[in-house]
Design a protein around this nucleic acid. Structure first.
Length: 678
DNA sequence: GCGATCAGTT
DNA sequence: CACAACTGATCGC
């Protein structure tokens, strides 16, 4: 949770991402994106009362954020008070103090933040200088240098303060692989799994309300399989997203949620209740989507070079002093000799082609990371002004790198009597001072009726792995019919058309959960995966194999079978995009615009049969994990590639092999058959 | 009864 | 480990 109080020193009568306490007296409100931890107080009765009394008070946000916010009836009272500002469109706002009659103009510019649909940073220009509030942001490397509105002419604007609302000072999080690598890693993992059979399904564990749409659409587009979600009415005016998601559960890719989805997965069920068909249990991989707020702050700030940086979060295990120590050198006033040190001004790296013919009103990419042609359009009731820079010069550093990522953890975890998992995690290097944890978790959950033995308690296993089954053991089991799922004899569509299928009852719902013998996955998949600190303590005896992004691209998973039962692979995933990777230009449609396809029926949703309590236990589950920290030796060469590959100017991983799904496919087959792979 | 806060969980 | 969200207990209005 952000500790940002909502207000900036320069413009204390504005409130951003906080709407309680002192913020109740703000003259204007700003919402950077639609995540709950940035909406504190936004629906409180006290603020509602304030609105009723102060008719001039508005909430400013991007059009997509407005759309998403108003999806919830709880925020409907804001409807007539929200001003949706186009991104990258400087807009003057008149701020009136209703008590004194005092008035002040400020120019605000929304800049794409790349965190989730509609997310923006706010650039304020007014009499107290230019300040930037970042919110949660994850910009691709070099992105700041390409933002024209951060520049005056070809030079970066003189920015008084940057308000960072993000956890960033941990050097472990500074390095991020390319978005192509990340997406491709996930893509090939999913592809290789769901093509094994129609029973192989993937569950994307997406915790946040928004921010994973990029993943959904890419998977759907590449694999031709729609992603099952609980709700999609929030995207009713965003057809490019809507097209790739569905409330029809008969698909092989799921991102549905249930309050106790962990229980469901341990019971070899998807959170929507799907468990099997024809008595054949599903083979489920869960992919942990971790929405890290970490970006390459050093490079971002190094480019911006503000006078002040105000961190709003002090990371756990860090102190305010340590944070300052990291940030200070990035500020304009800093120099080793305590004298201002000026560097050549930053130059706008790349100007976008002005698209004069584009009269499209919505310049917001839903993901807000793709720069759009600058369109200085001013709402009719507002006037654009260009404020003079308060100083003649500003400084920055060349070769800015600002980058961001999503990371995923993958753990394969055949369950029932046997549970194992592969931890998939990537480290770009333990020694570099700019590194990050980028992980993919996938758990493979299988369901087998004929065994009730528990192969191991994860904690016990960590203490002694002598009895650990080998990795291939986990895949030896044949998929068999379970009695709780035999009621459904419907035909399952092939993997390629499952996502589009509207046939009912292709899967059955399970009436039962595993009983208490199952092992908390919290103990395994979350607490024992390899972190950037390396395997220590309980993990120290375990086997962990890291797969770098490049290895992932080469689809060389032969080492998965090496010794241990737990293999750590990393395929991180950028949610931020650039022009090369993201062709969508999503934006909310006009409310009257008809939605394509069968959206109406989808919007109604389907009853998600999630009755979980009945029935006896069918399975007993065990998690097995072994880590081997010796294996965790990332290749520096790969690290370098990984770092540079996402730069806008440099094609991503130019020398990387293309993913070879056939090889992955083959690997999975062998693993499933229990073959040993070298 | 509602909301805020905190601790705990996922 | 951290992110975003949720749950339940407690407290005050």
């Amino acid at each position: 949770m952000s500790s940002f109080g909502g207000r900036m020193r320069e413009y204390p009568w504005l409130s951003i991402d906080r709407f309680d306490r002192e913020n109740l007296r703000a003259r204007a409100y700003f919402l950077s994106h639609c995540h709950k931890d940035h909406m504190k107080g936004l629906r409180a009765p006290s603020l509602k009362r304030r609105l009723e009394c102060s008719l001039k008070v508005h909430l400013y946000c991007s059009p997509v954020t407005k759309e998403l916010l108003l999806t919830s009836p709880k925020y409907k009272f804001w409807e007539n008070r929200i001003v949706a500002l186009e991104v990258e469109t400087p807009t003057q706002i008149s701020l009136l103090d209703e008590a004194s009659g005092e008035k002040e103009d400020i120019v605000v510019t929304l800049l794409p933040a790349g965190h989730c649909p509609g997310s923006v940073m706010f650039l304020f220009q007014g009499q107290n200088g230019t300040v930037l509030y970042t919110g949660d942001f994850r910009l691709a490397k070099g992105e700041a240098a390409r933002m024209e509105l951060l520049h005056s002419g070809t030079r970066v604007k003189d920015i008084q303060s940057v308000y960072l609302d993000t956890t960033f000072c941990d050097p472990r999080f500074y390095q991020i692989p390319s978005r192509e690598e990340c997406l491709n890693g996930i893509l090939e993992l999913v592809r290789s799994w769901i093509t094994l059979s129609r029973y192989h399904v993937v569950w994307l564990n997406c915790k946040a309300a928004y921010g994973y749409e990029y993943l959904f659409t890419n998977l759907s587009e590449e694999l031709g399989v729609k992603v099952h979600v609980n709700k999609l009415d929030m995207f009713k005016n965003m057809p490019e997203i809507l097209y790739h998601i569905t409330t029809d559960r008969h698909t092989q890719i799921h991102a549905c949620r249930h309050p106790r989805d962990d229980d469901y997965l341990r019971g070899n069920r998807l959170p929507c209740g799907m468990t099997s068909r024809n008595g054949t249990p599903l083979r489920i991989i869960s992919i942990w989507a971790m929405n890290k707020t970490i970006i390459w702050i050093k490079d971002f700030l190094g480019y911006i070079r503000p006078v002040n940086v105000y961190p709003n979060v002090v990371p756990l295990g860090s102190t305010a002093d340590e944070v300052v120590k990291i940030l200070k050198p990035l500020c304009k006033s800093y120099s080793i000799n305590s004298e201002p040190k000026y560097k050549p001004l930053g130059t706008l790296k790349r100007s976008r082609t002005m698209d004069l013919t584009d009269t499209d009103e919505g310049s917001d990419d839903l993901f807000d990371t793709e720069l759009t042609p600058v369109r200085h359009k001013i709402p009719k009731h507002q006037v654009e002004t260009t404020l003079p820079e308060t100083k003649a010069s500003s400084e920055n550093s060349e070769g800015s790198h600002s980058e961001n990522m999503r990371s995923y953890k993958a753990t394969t975890m055949p369950m029932s009597s046997q549970v194992d998992f592969i931890d998939c995690e990537e480290s770009n290097g333990e020694d570099d001072d700019e590194e990050s944890e980028n992980t993919v978790w996938a758990q493979v959950v299988t369901h087998s009726p004929d065994s009730t033995s528990i192969l191991g308690n994860p904690n016990e296993e960590q203490e002694s792995n002598a009895d650990m089954p080998q990795w291939d053991v986990f895949f030896k089991r044949d998929i068999k019919t379970t009695d709780d799922s035999s009621e459904n004899e419907d035909h399952l569509p092939s993997s390629t058309d499952a996502g589009r299928s509207q046939s009912p009852n292709l899967f059955s719902d399970s009436d039962s959960l595993s009983d208490s013998t199952h092992i908390s996955s919290q103990n395994s998949s979350q607490s024992t995966h390899i972190s950037e600190q390396g395997s220590q303590g309980l993990d120290s005896q375990a086997d962990t194999v890291l797969i770098t992004s490049q290895q992932t691209h080469g689809a060389d998973f032969s080492f998965l079978n090496k010794g241990g039962n737990r293999v750590t692979v990393s395929v991180s995933h950028f949610m931020a995009m650039d022009n090369q990777t993201e062709s969508h230009r999503w934006k909310p449609l006009d409310q009257n615009t008809p939605c394509p396809g069968n959206i109406d029926s989808d919007l109604k949703g389907k009853n998600q049969e999630t009755n979980a309590e009945t029935g006896a236990a069918q399975t007993q589950n065990t998690l097995i994990e072994v880590n081997n920290e010796k294996s965790k030796t990332p290749n520096p060469e790969l690290e370098r590639d990984s770092q540079s590959s996402s730069d806008f100017e440099i094609p991503s991983t130019p020398d990387a092999e293309l993913p070879r799904p056939d090889k992955l496919h083959c690997l999975y087959k062998k693993l499933a058959a229990g073959e040993t792979i070298y």
